[in-house]
């Protein structure tokens, strides 16, 4: 395996925030509503990790450093891990583990439903993130993993629906996502690849 230090650094950087936040909540450094703060940080963390995951391929194409691609699976799995913790925080701190209420919320609140769909769309991707599944699924693996673009759209919609008064931050993530999609459009992507490929 190449770049062991780099992979290790990514692993530690992604692992650290949740325990640090938990510790902050423990010492009352997150204010009077720590559950809500954890919920929001985990959700935003998950979205950022998703955007980072999708940034790696364009980065590799532009810089020709194989380290980017080496951590793509890791980033994807971290995104899923944060999404799971986000879901858990919602169940504990917002619903108070009232599962009857969960049914009502899913029926009545589109943003909860959209968030749940986003999580569900990540699940098969996480489950097939291994060599065995890649071999088993063959060409269909790539098709399946295109689902990540649906996840991205659902996650952004989920966040937009929660915003109450200022959409600056959401616009930032949205711009990032649109940029990533634009880089994947056949034309500029190919051009970028060709130009990079032609370099000495």
């Amino acid at each position: 395996m190449k770049h062991p230090l780099w992979r290790c650094a990514v692993f530690v950087a992604a692992l650290l925030p949740p325990p640090v936040w938990l510790y902050q909540a423990w010492i009352f450094a997150l204010g009077p509503d720590p559950g809500k703060v954890l919920l929001e940080r985990l959700g935003q963390g998950s979205l950022i990790l998703l955007l980072l995951t999708l940034s790696l391929t364009p980065l590799q194409r532009a810089t020709h450093w194989s380290g980017w691609g080496q951590v793509r699976r890791q980033f994807g799995l971290w995104c899923f891990a944060y999404a799971c913790l986000h879901l858990l925080a919602y169940l504990v701190f917002v619903l108070g583990l009232d599962f009857a209420q969960l049914g009502t919320e899913l029926q009545k609140r589109p943003y909860i439903l959209v968030g749940a769909l986003a999580w569900c769309s990540l699940l098969p991707l996480a489950l097939t993130s291994n060599r065995f599944s890649m071999r088993r699924l063959g060409r269909r693996w790539k098709q399946l993993h295109r689902l990540v673009y649906a996840t991205l759209g659902l996650a952004l919609l989920h966040m937009l629906w929660i915003v109450r008064s200022d959409i600056g931050q959401w616009l930032l993530y949205c711009t990032w996502a649109l940029l990533l999609l634009a880089l994947r459009l056949p034309r500029p992507g190919r051009r970028l690849g060709r130009r990079a490929g032609g370099a000495p």
Partner: peptide, 23 residues
């Protein structure tokens, strides 16, 4: 009467903590 985006049945009395969200 719920807010269209969330329920108004319950509330979190602040300050809450991790172990008692104080719902």
């Amino acid at each position: 009467v719920d807010h269209p985006r969330w329920s108004q049945k319950r509330e979190r009395r602040l300050p809450g903590s991790l172990f008692s969200p104080n719902l």
